[in-house]
Design a protein around this nucleic acid. Structure first.
Lengths: 128, 128
DNA sequence: CCTTGACCTTCCCATCACTGGAACCCTTAT
DNA sequence: ATAAGGGTTCCAGTGATGGGAAGGTCAAGG
């Protein structure tokens, strides 16, 4: 299968698939004309990657998850540890963003937002 | 004032302050020895930038906010528009992360996480 | 046979907002 | 004289792509 078909099937841009090959996440064969030749397992792997990335896992996490996925003797605890660490990062990010949101929505609410120069938003940025 | 003092006062790394000069956000004078010479207004400006960045505004947003801050004839509506757009972006980001968090915490909860290979997390990544 | 258009390839540059490091200069104190 | 602790510039790298150039390949139509 050529790269465009794989892109369509997995939802990943062709560029991204080439990148994943470059960093060793997939290793498609090559046809005689130099085109990448993907088989079912490659597509399956790329779909896995697309889902993991969709859940926000880093490329390196994905590499680890892929390795575990392909290891029949894996311990589910290892998978869980990766997911748990990632979950913690996400929660941290959310917390940071929530704080920004709270401040920003207060400021936006406090600013009358007309032609006058007086502005609580700028005042806050000015004075902390 | 030399860059280290400004860094201490604003909480910004010296590297970042140099970068802000490079992209035209501040334009400190130069002493005879080539050192950057910051005065009170530069420090004030950098502190403003530090706070705006702390609220997640992009550098380009900061540039706009700085310009408005320095414009006595500004309309607070312009400031508010920038803040509102940024708030919307943040809320979008939060929504995306919340979705990830929900899925991930379900998966982490469902995975027994021991030595056995059976793993709902991998199953989910495998099958969507 | 030739051309067109849709593929494919590699390669390099850009993103965002820094961060690290090398190589070198200046100042102050010992 | 030297050492510590400033400062300077410039180059390269980060994560995970995206854009675009320059050129090879393939199938269909005139």
């Amino acid at each position: 299968m050529n790269i465009k078909d794989v892109a369509t099937r997995t939802g990943l841009p062709a560029k991204t698939i080439r990148y994943y090959e470059e960093i060793g996440l997939v290793t498609p064969d090559r046809a005689e004309n130099g085109y990448r030749a993907f088989d079912r397992t490659h597509v399956h792997k790329l779909a896995f990657l697309a889902r993991a990335r969709g859940l926000g896992f880093s490329i390196e996490d994905c590499r680890g998850l892929l390795a575990l996925w392909e290891d029949r003797a894996r311990a589910s605890g290892d998978v869980r540890a990766i997911a748990k660490a990632h979950l913690a990062e996400i929660e941290e990010k959310i917390a940071g963003l929530e704080e920004m949101r709270a401040t920003l929505s207060d400021l936006v609410a406090a600013c009358h937002g007309d032609d006058r120069p007086d502005c609580p938003i700028l005042k806050r940025l000015e004075t902390g």
